[in-house]
Design a protein around this nucleic acid. Sequence first.
DNA 1: TGTTGACCTTCCCATGATGGGAAGGTGCAG
DNA 2: CTGCACCTTCCCATCATGGGAAGGTCAACA
Lengths: 142, 142
Amino acid sequence: MNIGQAAQASGVSAKMIRYYESIGLVPPVGRRTSGYRDYGPADLHRLGFIRRARDLGFSIERIRLLLDLWSDQSRSNAEVKAVALTHIKELEERARQLQEMADSLRTLAEACDGDGRPDCPIIQSLETGEAPTCQGEHPAWH
Amino acid sequence: MNIGQAAQASGVSAKMIRYYESIGLVPPVGRRTSGYRDYGPADLHRLGFIRRARDLGFSIERIRLLLDLWSDQSRSNAEVKAVALTHIKELEERARQLQEMADSLRTLAEACDGDGRPDCPIIQSLETGEAPTCQGEHPAWH
DNA sequence: TGTTGACCTTCCCATGATGGGAAGGTGCAG
DNA sequence: CTGCACCTTCCCATCATGGGAAGGTCAACA
């Protein structure tokens, strides 16, 4: 099986398959006399594992760890779970940070009428670092 | 004011200040006879703006846009708001994706006892792409 | 005055994961 | 035999940031 077919079958691009080989994430695969790489079912299996781990946001280095645990017959599932929980914590931390940024910015955007005047609380806040004033600070219109 | 002091005052590292200058995000600042860069209040003001925009997750290119809008006296706040809303959407999309990954992985992790056996639903799911079985698939204990 | 240590300058390199593209070889179908 | 689709390796780009080397400057202190 050529690299292109392996890419299609595994969902990992040919570029990435070569890259993963170059960094030792997948072992060097057999070559035909032409020099073409030749992929078998076990290779596809490994590539699929990697793709699914990437889809879950695991870094290359952590996938390396997971692959080691995968091939380690004497592994305990507690080790795998620990890696997963660490990763979950990091994902949620990053998600939280992004959402925090979005919330801050939304507060600013809500203070901006967007009515065509040059005056803008968003710009003002970036300029001074101060929270915007008025526009609901004393929400008497409520 | 030297670059180091400007860095301290603005919260942007000296490395980054030079980089921002090199890409034209901040104009070339005055030099002393020694060749040292010399920063004044207006320069600090701009650097502070940039730092706060970075803290809100804006990309360099979008900050360039915001800086243009800042210096444009005839800007309408609607333009600024539009940039902000676009950015909010992107931030929330990324946050959502990360949280989705975390949720998927948490489902797997919950199916894993972590009791020291080699059997592990997390690894199995990465291997086969199938959702884990048992462990609550028929939650009779509810 | 001389020395020392902290600071500045430019330049190059690295990150992480991925894609683009060039130059040249291979394989298969018409 | 020709053409096209595929393969090979190699280099470069991304984005924002930091590290470090080699060399110049400045201020304080003996």
